[in-house]
Amino acid sequence: MKKVLVVDDSRFVRNFHTNLLKAAGFKADGAMDGVEALEKALSNKYDLILSDINMPNMDGIVFVEKYRQSDNETPIIMISTQAEAANKEKAIQAGANLYIVKPVKPNTLVLHVKMLVG
């Protein structure tokens, strides 16, 4: 079973995403900020990481940058409501494979994840 790490500071989104992905046949873990995400991502093998950008303690960009120092393989989707091109570029440069702009429909998100997991 493919394993996904869901990173989001909103408890609601986190639960929602993990449940959504579980329903779609994935295993899913949650992390509430970049710090927790980094710790989990480095100690587990995930098939995909889905991360929010705007988070307390360590934001998504910093988290992905740090994570990419040790692994350039695992696909990462960054998801954020900020549609500005600057943010997208930041995410891609930090190491995201894909940048999804909210609003995104739940099944769209699942398809994105499925497609990127391959």
């Binding site: 350039n72 696909p75 891609i92 440069q93 494979n97 894909l98 499925k114 497609m115 990127l116 391959g118």
Partner: peptide, 21 residues
């Protein structure tokens, strides 16, 4: 070198997507 990394990631993403569909 950063560009190459970005391209690598993008290609791998594309590759996974195109095999999926």
């Amino acid at each position: 070198p950063e560009d190459r990394e970005i391209i690598t990631r993008s290609l791998s993403g594309l590759e996974r997507a195109s095999s999926f569909v």
